[in-house]
Design a protein around this nucleic acid. Structure first.
Length: 932
DNA sequence: AAATTCACG
DNA sequence: GACGTACGTGAATTTC
C-alpha cells in the first residue's frame, strides 16, 4: 500500500524506549554468559505490549522505530557544548544498544537510523512527509522536544502513561500552540540538553512573552518595550544566544532519507525469527508469552547450572488445562480425593459462593488441587433449570453431593493439624467455612506470601500473580457471571463451566504456593510471613464475622437533620451566586467563583479545571460568603452520603451489626485497609462529625472500650534514628511537641504558647512524612522560606534525623527496598526514577519503615490478643491503625483494659527492644464517641 | 473509568 | 532555573 490518505504512521522513539527499559528493570544478565540484557528485556517487553495494543480502527498501517546514530551532529557544529553535560551512558547499557536494533528487526518492525543525525530529526522528517501526504501520525515518545511537531494530524503518545498528547496537550505543557513551541524552548533553554536560552526565563515566562508578542522574532525586535528592566536587558543582550538556542531546538524536516514511507508498512513478525531471537537472549517468560500470542509452542531454553527453583519448576509442570479437571459428583469420588489429600499432607482449596460479602454469601462449591494439573471441583448448591428458562429453577442441579454429607466428610481434613490447607486470600474461605462450623487450620496463603515477598512491587490478586509468575491468564469470572445488571450468581453457572473455572483457581493457587514457598526463605521474609501475616488471618476473620453494633435509628435521625440543613444552605448558596447550580459539582462551582464572580486566587489543575478544594475555599471564605457556605454544605454532604446514609446500608439484616472487611495486603507498609464499609475513617476531628460515632454502640450490658498507642510513630522515629533528646523526653513522659518547640525556638517550657507548639507538632509529623519546605509551608500556611528555615533549624538541633533520612534513602537505592524493625520489606522500585516521581519515592521510603514498624507492632498485639482475653467476657471488634476497639461486659472493663494494655505495650517484645516505652491510653463508654 | 474531594491514622 | 511535593488509605460524586 502506498502511503497516503487513510494511512496511519507510528514513529517510535527508540532511545526513549531503551532508557526507560534500562531504568525500569534491575540489572539482569544472561544466565549462560553474564551478558547484561535488562534493557533488552524491557525493550522487548515494551515492543510486545505495543504490538498487543495495536488493534482496532486506530491501528497503524506503517510503523518504524527510530534510533540516534553517532554522537556528532550539525548541532555540535552550531554549539560545541550541545548535550555536553549529559552523563556518560552506563557501562552495562552500551553493549545492549545494538541488541535493541536486533530486537526491533526480530519483531519485523522497520528500524531506521542515519549517521550524524538525531532520531528526533528523522522523526520530524517522516512526520512532515506523512502529514503532507494526508496521513495520520502518532509519535510514541514523551520527549518534549518532539511536541513542536504536533498538529495537522500529528499526535504524540506517552506509552508508559498511555496518554495521547494533541494540540491541547502541547498548549498545557508549553502554554503556546505547537508552532510556537520552539520559540518558548529557545527562551527557556533546557538543562538536560545544555541549551542556554535566556537566563532567568523559564517556560512560564517564555509562554507569557510569546503570547504577548506573537513570535520570538517579534519579541526580540521589540524587546525595548518590555517593562521589567532585567528581562529587557537579557532579551537584548543575549539575542544571539537565544537565536542560536532556537536553531538547536528546531527539528530538521529535511533529513536526507535512504528509504521512503512505503518501506515502513506494518508487517507480521516471522515467528521463527522472533522466537529465535528471544531464545538466544534466554528470555523465558517473555518467549513463552509471545509464543502463546503467535500460537506457537514455547521454545525450550536450557537452564544453566545454578537453578532458580521457581523458573526451573515451571517447565516441568503440565500446562494449565481447564478441560482436564475432574467434576466430583458423588461421595465415592470425594472419598478418593480425601484419601489422596491425607496421603500427601497438603491441598490447595478454594470456595465458590453467591457473593463477595462473606456474611451474605452462600456456599456453592469447593475446588481442590493436590498437584499442578491435578484438580477437581465439588459442586454443592448449583441451581438446575433449562437454559431457556430466564429465571432458572430453584431446584438443585443433578449430580451434586448433598452439601451436609460433603462437608461432614471434608471437615476432619480441613481441621486436621497434620494437613496444610493452601489458599489465595484464605480469610475469605475461612469465613465461609466458619459459617458451616468448620475451623480451617493450619493454612498457607499465597496472597500473603506474595505480600511478604513483593510489597511495593505489584498487587497480590490471583490474576496478577498468575500472569506474573505462571505466565497464565486465568479464566475471567466475568465470562461466567456477566457484569452489570445482567450479572448472575455463581449458583446459576452451569456446572461444567464452574468446574473449569473453580478447579483452575485451585490449580493456580497450588502452583503459586510451589513458586513462593522456597522464595520466602531466600528473601529472608519467612519470619514476617509466619509471625505477622499468617496468624493474623483467623484473628481478622473472627473480628469481621462478629461485627460492631450500629444503631440505625441514630443514623436515620442524623441523616434527616443533615438533609434539612443542606437544603437551607443550598438555597442560600444559590441566592449568593445569583443563579441555581449543582453545589456538589466542583466544575460548576469553579465557574461560578472564578468565571462569573471573578474572584482571584483561582488555580487550574492539570486538566484545566478550577481547583475548589477545602484549602482554596478557606482562603476565599475570608472575603466572601459563598465559599464559606459551600464548605459547610460539603461537610454535611460528606457526613450524610458517606456515613449516615451508607452505614445504614451496611447493617447486616441477620446480625444487626456492621461487618467490615480488612484487606491485609491493602497498604504497602503493613497497615491494614478497611473496606465495605471503611471503618477506619469514621469522623472524629470535628464536633459534628464525631457524633456519628454515637451510632456505634455496645450490646446491652456491655461497654465499648478503646485503647490506642500514644505517639507511636514518633516513638519509633526516636528509636530508629537514635535521637537521645527525643528518647529521653518520651521516657520522662514529657509533651513531645512542646519539647521540640522549646529546643527549636529556644522558648522555655513554661513560656510555651499554643501557636509555637502547633508549629513544632507540624514539623514532627512532617519529619515522619519525609518533610519538604513546600509541604510544611502549605500545612502551616506560612511562606516557604520560613518553613525551610524551621526545617533547617530542626535538622541542626536533631542531626540524627537528617542522618536517618539520608541513610534510609541510600539503603533503598542500594537494595531496592526498605524494611521495618521486624524485617518486613517494602520495595521501592521508583527510588531511582527521574522527575517528580523521585520525590514521591524518596518520601515514601522515609515513611515506610516508621509507619510499617508501627503496623507490625499492633499486628503482634492483635495476634496475641485472643490468647490474652480468652477468659474475659469481651470481644475485639475493630482496628484503626493505632487503636483497638473492644466490646466488653460492663463488670469486666477494668480487667480487660489491664490485660489489653499489657499486650499492646509489650507487643514489640521479645523480637525488638525499643529504647522508648510504648504508652497506651484507654477510654470507655456506651458508644464509640464516649470510648475514644 | 478518571478526576475531584474529603474522611481517618 | 523550574517543577511539583508532605506518608498511608477508601468512598461518594461528578464528568467524560
Amino acid at each position: 500500500m502506498s502511503f497516503g490518505k487513510g494511512c496511519h504512521l507510528h514513529l517510535i522513539d527508540g532511545s526513549s524506549f531503551i532508557f526507560r527499559a534500562y531504568h525500569a528493570l534491575p540489572p539482569l544478565t544472561r544466565k549462560s554468559d553474564g551478558l547484561p540484557i535488562g534493557a533488552v528485556a524491557g525493550f522487548c517487553n515494551m515492543l510486545q505490549r505495543y504490538v498487543e495494543g495495536n488493534h482496532g480502527p486506530d491501528a497503524p498501517t506503517h510503523v518504524a522505530v527510530i534510533f540516534d546514530k553517532g554522537s556528532h551532529t550539525f548541532r555540535n557544529d552550531l554549539y560545541d557544548a550541545y548535550k555536553a553535560n549529559r552523563e556518560a551512558m552506563p557501562e552495562d547499557m552500551r553493549p545492549q544498544i545494538p541488541l535493541t536494533r536486533d530486537a526491533t528487526r526480530a519483531f519485523n518492525i522497520a528500524c531506521e537510523e542515519i549517521e550524524g543525525y538525531e532520531a528526533d530529526d528523522i522523526i520530524a522528517t517522516l512526520a512532515c512527509q506523512a502529514r503532507d501526504l494526508g496521513g495520520r501520525v502518532t509519535i510514541i515518545s514523551s520527549d518534549k522536544d518532539l511536541m513542536q511537531l504536533v498538529g495537522g494530524g500529528v499526535e504524540m503518545l506517552d506509552a508508559m502513561k498511555n496518554r495521547r498528547i494533541d494540540v491541547d496537550g502541547v498548549r498545557e505543557k508549553f502554554g503556546v500552540d505547537p508552532d510556537r513551541v520552539v520559540d518558548v524552548q529557545a527562551l527557556a533553554g533546557d538543562s538536560v540538553d545544555n541549551i542556554p536560552g535566556a537566563p532567568g526565563i523559564g517556560i512560564k515566562t517564555a509562554a507569557l512573552l510569546i503570547n504577548e508578542f506573537g513570535s520570538l522574532d517579534e519579541l526580540l525586535d521589540r524587546a525595548e518595550e518590555i517593562k521589567q528592566p532585567k528581562r529587557r536587558e537579557t532579551l537584548i543582550g543575549k539575542r544571539a544566544q537565544i537565536e542560536m538556542s532556537k536553531r538547536l531546538v528546531q527539528l530538521d524536516c529535511d533529513t536526507p532519507l535512504e528509504f521512503t514511507l512505503d518501506d515502513l508498512e506494518v508487517r507480521d513478525p516471522d515467528p521463527e525469527v522472533l522466537l529465535g531471537f528471544l531464545t538466544e537472549m534466554e528470555f523465558r517468560t517473555l518467549s513463552k508469552r509471545i509464543a502463546e500470542a503467535l500460537g506457537r509452542e514455547a521454545p525450550v531454553i536450557p537452564e544453566p547450572a545454578a537453578q532458580e527453583v521457581a523458573e526451573a519448576a515451571v517447565p516441568d509442570w503440565p500446562a494449565i488445562d481447564p478441560a482436564s479437571y475432574e467434576r466430583v459428583g458423588e461421595m465415592a469420588a470425594l472419598e478418593r480425593w480425601i484419601a489422596a489429600i491425607r496421603a500427601q499432607g497438603f491441598v490447595a482449596i478454594d470456595t465458590e459462593t453467591t457473593s463477595l460479602n462473606e456474611m451474605q454469601a452462600d456456599l456453592v462449591g469447593i475446588s481442590l488441587a493436590t498437584a499442578p494439573g491435578t484438580a477437581c471441583y465439588i459442586p454443592l448448591a448449583h441451581k438446575g433449570g433449562a437454559a431457556d428458562d430466564l429465571f432458572g429453577s430453584e431446584d438443585l442441579a443433578e449430580g451434586q453431593v448433598p452439601m451436609a454429607n460433603a462437608l461432614a466428610a471434608l471437615k476432619p481434613v480441613l481441621e486436621d493439624d497434620a494437613i496444610l490447607k493452601i489458599g489465595q486470600n484464605m480469610k475469605y474461605d475461612a469465613k465461609i467455612l466458619a459459617a458451616h462450623d468448620i475451623a480451617i487450620a493450619p493454612i498457607d496463603d499465597t496472597m500473603l506470601m506474595s505480600y511478604a515477598l513483593h510489597a511495593g512491587e505489584h498487587g497480590h490478586g490471583m490474576d496478577t500473580l498468575s500472569e506474573r509468575y505462571l505466565s497464565h491468564e486465568p479464566i475471567p469470572i466475568k465470562t461466567l457471571l456477566g457484569s452489570g445488571k445482567s450479572a448472575i450468581t455463581f449458583d446459576r453457572v452451569p456446572v461444567e463451566e464452574a468446574v473449569k473455572y473453580a478447579a483452575e483457581d485451585a490449580d493456580i493457587t497450588l502452583r503459586l504456593w510451589h513458586v513462593f514457598k522456597p522464595q520466602l526463605h531466600r528473601a529472608r521474609v519467612t519470619t514476617v510471613y509466619e509471625t505477622l501475616e499468617r496468624p493474623l488471618v483467623p484473628v481478622l476473620a473472627r473480628m469481621e464475622r462478629h461485627g460492631v453494633k450500629v444503631d440505625r435509628a441514630t443514623l436515620r435521625a442524623m441523616s434527616g437533620k443533615f438533609a434539612q440543613k443542606m437544603g437551607a444552605l443550598e438555597a442560600e448558596i444559590h441566592a449568593l451566586a445569583g443563579r441555581s447550580f449543582n453545589v456538589g459539582s466542583p466544575k460548576q462551582l469553579g465557574e461560578i467563583l472564578f468565571d462569573e464572580m471573578g474572584l482571584d486566587g483561582g488555580k487550574k489543575g492539570k486538566t484545566g479545571a478550577w481547583a475548589t478544594g477545602a484549602d482554596v475555599l478557606e482562603d476565599l471564605a475570608t472575603e466572601h460568603e459563598l465559599p464559606a457556605r459551600v464548605l459547610d454544605w460539603r461537610q454535611l454532604s460528606k457526613l450524610k452520603s458517606t456515613y449516615t446514609d451508607a452505614l445504614q446500608d451496611h447493617i447486616d439484616p441477620e446480625t444487626g451489626r456492621v461487618h467490615t472487611s480488612y484487606v491485609q495486603t491493602g497498604a504497602n507498609t503493613g497497615r491494614l485497609a478497611s473496606t465495605d464499609p471503611n471503618l477506619q475513617n469514621i469522623p472524629v476531628r470535628t464536633e459534628e462529625g464525631r457524633r456519628i460515632r454515637e451510632a456505634f454502640v455496645a450490646e446491652e450490658g456491655n461497654l465499648l472500650v478503646s485503647l490506642d498507642y500514644s505517639q507511636i510513630e514518633l516513638r519509633i522515629l526516636a528509636h530508629v534514628a537514635q535521637i537521645d533528646a527525643l528518647k529521653q523526653a518520651f521516657r520522662d513522659g514529657h509533651d513531645i511537641h512542646a519539647m521540640t518547640a522549646s529546643e527549636m525556638f529556644n522558648v522555655p517550657m513554661d513560656e510555651m504558647t499554643p501557636e509555637v507548639r502547633r508549629q513544632a507538632k507540624a514539623i514532627n509529623f512532617g519529619v515522619i512524612y519525609g518533610i519538604s519546605g513546600f509541604g510544611l509551608a502549605r500545612n502551616l500556611r506560612i511562606p516557604r522560606s520560613e518553613a525551610q528555615g524551621f526545617i533547617d533549624r530542626y535538622f541542626e538541633r536533631f542531626p540524627g534525623i537528617k542522618g536517618y533520612m539520608d541513610e534510609t534513602v541510600a539503603f533503598a537505592r542500594e537494595h531496592g527496598h526498605v524494611q521495618t524493625l521486624f524485617g518486613r520489606k517494602i520495595h521501592t522500585p521508583e527510588i531511582s526514577a527521574k522527575g517528580p516521581r523521585a520525590g514521591f519515592a524518596r518520601r515514601a521510603a522515609i515513611n515506610a519503615p516508621i509507619q510499617g514498624t508501627a503496623a507490625d507492632i499492633i499486628r503482634r498485639a492483635m495476634i496475641r490478643m485472643p490468647g490474652a482475653i480468652a477468659d474475659l467476657p469481651c470481644r475485639m471488634l475493630l482496628q484503626v491503625h493505632d487503636e483497638l476497639i473492644f466490646e466488653v461486659q460492663e463488670d469486666a472493663v477494668d480487667r480487660v483494659i489491664g490485660a489489653v494494655r499489657e499486650v499492646m505495650q509489650g507487643a514489640a517484645h521479645p523480637a525488638v527492644h525499643l529504647d522508648v516505652p510504648l504508652v497506651v491510653d484507654a477510654g470507655q463508654g456506651a458508644n464509640w464517641a464516649e470510648a475514644h
